[in-house]
Amino acid sequence: MPRAGWLGLLVVALAVAPLALPPFFLQLLTEIAIVGLFATAFNLLMGFGGMVSFGHAAYFALGAYAPALLVKRAGLPMLLALPAAPLAAAAGALLFGFFIVRLSHTYFAMLSLAFAQIVFTVIFKWKALTGGDDGLLDVWPPAALKSPAAYYYFTLAVVGLSLLALRLIVDSPFGYALRSVRENPRRARFIGIDVRRHQLVAFVISGAFSGVAGGLFAFYNGSVFPDFAYFTKSFEPLVVALLGGVQSFYGPLAGAFGFKILEWLVSRQWPVYWPLFLGSIVIVVIVVLPYGFVGLAGGRPWRTRPAAKA
């Protein structure tokens, strides 16, 4: 079957899912879609830009808190508040990214982690605004979107559009240039690309879509907590992308599917063991994968996808 055929089948399957599945599974699918978007946005940096952020929870959290605050503190309805998610996240990504892209490799990762910790701490400490540790509760979508099926469709639509946009970006001239920066920043400079600025633009785009994921999750969850910005949350898209494959655009989506199903299966039986399980998987994947993130650091020749047919 051609690719368009599979895609069509998938869309139909997702569309009729609410008819066949109980609400619990719709919620699981909703979560998968949100995590999938988060990991795909993250992977725009890691897979396509060669930049590994250890602080993407910051942009997820900004995207969750911005609309939640608008709903709670300004009384805006959800649909008006939600656009604040990508805006706030993009603003944060612009501010932090400006500094982060000045560094590379391990230091890039560490500075992104440091900024995420700042976001976490601010959320945690600024009780008057954010509710601190107690979070913000009762952040619900309007009645029409409140049922699991309705919110599922809503999430699917927003995530679908976001993925489409990300796909366009990856395939655009910007995406080509981003890959060239990943492959060889020095060479990229000598074809006229301002490497840092390019990385910053990618960082902001990635942050903005992470924010969309955060916003969707806030209204799905009905509440937001400082944990959203904690460093363990930053590892979620990393692990998901790693599991699914960072070299392909759809890898993180597959990873999100596997990750969430596994989480559900394991936590259902032994809730306490889930982190142990996750940690072990991460360790095994890293030790067993021969070259890790192929070429991210090493530059080993490797086919990322079928090369353009000349």
């Binding site: 590994v52 250890f54 490799h105 391990t106 990762a109 363990t232 590892f235 990393l238 692990v239 790693l242 982190p275 142990l276 996750l278 940690g279 072990s280 998987i281 991460v282 360790i283 890293i286 030790v287 070259y291 890790g292 993130f293 991210l296 650091a297 090493g298």
Partner: peptide
């Protein structure tokens, strides 16, 4: 001998375990 970022992630896995 691997990518430093992989090492970082592995030690993160250790935190969870």
């Amino acid at each position: 001998r691997r990518d430093p970022l992989m090492q970082l992630i592995l030690t993160f896995g250790l935190i969870l375990v």
